[in-house]
């Protein structure tokens, strides 16, 4: 049939036919942005793991349908603006104090799901005291711990988690463990405390690790209902900008260097 002779109805039917053939229809969607993750530009550097970690928290909140009942505490660090991306009630704590702020929130509102989101500088340097004592008291909230081995926001200074020999602006020759100490495995440390219930280490460098990290976050939110103690999910991430690598190289470096030192898996599992 000559195209020019097609009537409007025929034209429409033809287009409908084409649309039927397309895979991009509503019923074929298998992955889409979840509602709790606000549809906006994120300020993170290209390839930064913070974005994936935010997305997983948002997905879990929506899957458990607890958006109205969840309160997050944002840290100081690159993720200081986490509340711009998560459509839930959030609070910004002073540097390192997120676990103390979350303690207050959870004790006043015990029915709410409470979590902190903290970098390694925030949680394991300036906030070590708050972190350890909240875990030791067994405060009933989740700590999401983003370990990128460096102070991201302030330009790449050495963090407690910086690897031996790893260069940073304050360890330009590489971290010397004799003068600077060994990296602090705070996750293993707090797992020793009777107050913690579930402690695990994950990463978001590959699709399979992303799925496991999400499962760990989901479990932790579910455990919060049991009122059994603190859950901590460490997420080993990259910082392409301060590691001075492109995102693909940074994930490769993470796999080759971070993961052997910070092995993935559960460190403390609920006994039941």
């Amino acid at each position: 049939m000559n195209e020019k002779t097609m009537t409007a109805e025929e034209d429409l039917r033809f287009e409908q036919m084409l649309a039927e053939e397309s895979v991009c229809t509503k019923e074929n969607i298998v992955f889409d942005r979840t509602d709790t993750l606000i549809d906006t530009n994120m300020h993170y550097c290209p390839g930064c793991g913070h974005g994936v970690a935010h997305r997983l928290i948002a997905e879990v909140i929506d899957e458990l349908d607890i958006q109205k009942d969840t309160i997050g505490v944002a840290p100081v660090g690159c993720s200081v603006l986490a509340y711009n991306y998560l459509n839930i009630d959030m609070n910004g704590a002073a540097h390192g104090r997120a676990a103390a702020v979350a303690t207050g929130i959870k004790r006043v509102l015990p029915e709410k799901y409470v979590f902190t989101y903290q970098g390694d500088g925030d949680l394991a340097a300036i906030g070590t005291g708050e972190t350890i004592h909240a875990c030791n008291r067994g405060e009933n909230f989740l700590i999401v711990f983003i370990n990128n081995g460096i102070y991201g926001m302030t330009g790449g200074q050495m963090a407690p988690t910086t690897l031996p020999g790893m260069k940073s602006t304050t360890s330009p020759e590489g971290r010397d463990i004799v003068t600077m100490g060994s990296p602090l495995k705070i996750t293993e440390l707090i797992a020793q405390l009777p107050g913690t219930y579930y402690v695990t280490r994950t990463a978001v460098n590959s699709p399979v690790n992303v799925r496991k990290a999400k499962a760990a976050i989901k479990k932790s939110f579910e455990y919060q209902k049991l009122n059994k103690g603190t859950c901590l999910v460490e997420i080993v991430t990259n910082c392409p900008s301060n590691w001075k690598m492109n995102p693909v190289e940074s994930n490769k470096w993470l796999e080759d260097n971070m993961l052997p030192f910070y092995p993935l898996g559960d460190i403390k599992k609920p006994s039941n």
């Binding site: 895979v23 298998v30 993170y44 913070h50 974005g51």
Partner: peptide
Amino acid sequence: TGCTNCAMVCPDGIIKVYRK
């Protein structure tokens, strides 16, 4: 193939995946 791997690792959460 609509495996969603790309969407899993995208830090900016901007990939929508379809599968049929």
